[in-house]
């Protein structure tokens, strides 16, 4: 019945661990998102500075299609882990996976799409400059996070109804 191929249930725990790890790292050292590492308040040389391929890069004031450049990839690693974590949470099976949970999943997805759009629209008019960039970074995985929360809330509500039997 399920039209979406879902991941094994055990991967949900891995996803949660990844999200908490990334979130924890972000809270304790927010600069890591922007690729600047620090330790106990003092800046340190990042071990993640490598040469990477860059598309549509800035080259002395000119935009070039491709170039190699030095970049601290700690923020890329963090965002990849965060995205991977949110995908694992959002698309792993729940305990009782059937056509009803599939419908709840679809409802949660459409509601998350609406809420995410509204939040980004609000952010567009309320945040500017660096803060807006910061919000947009969160916008990369906010849809999946909102979806996971709405879906968990719906499942929880229906579990509550289980007290009704005869």
């Amino acid at each position: 019945m399920n039209k979406i191929k879902l991941l094994p249930r055990s991967l949900r725990v891995v996803g949660l661990a990844l999200v908490f790890f990334c979130f924890g790292l972000f809270v304790t050292d927010p600069e890591v998102v922007f690729g600047e590492m620090s330790f106990l308040g003092s800046e340190i040389q990042s071990p993640w500075k490598v040469t990477v391929p860059s598309l549509l890069a800035d080259d002395h004031g000119e935009t070039v299609l491709f170039k190699w450049e030095e970049n601290d990839i700690s923020n890329e690693i963090l965002l990849t882990l965060m995205l991977l974590g949110t995908y694992l949470i959002a698309f792993s099976k729940i305990k009782e996976e059937d056509e009803f949970s599939y419908q709840l999943r679809m409802e949660a997805m459409s509601q998350a799409h609406l809420w995410n759009g509204l939040l980004l629209l609000l952010a567009n008019w309320l945040f500017y400059d660096g803060i807006f960039l910061y919000i947009m970074i969160w916008g990369l995985f906010s849809f999946l996070l909102i979806f996971s929360l709405v879906f968990a809330f719906k499942i929880r509500n229906y579990r509550k109804d289980l007290s009704y039997e005869e």
């Binding site: 009782e96 059937d98 289980l162």
Partner: peptide
Amino acid sequence: VGVSRQTINAMELGKYVPSTTL
């Protein structure tokens, strides 16, 4: 019928209309 108790409960409460298969 191979679904969760939650699904049967939701159908009885009129909160879910099942698929033709179910």
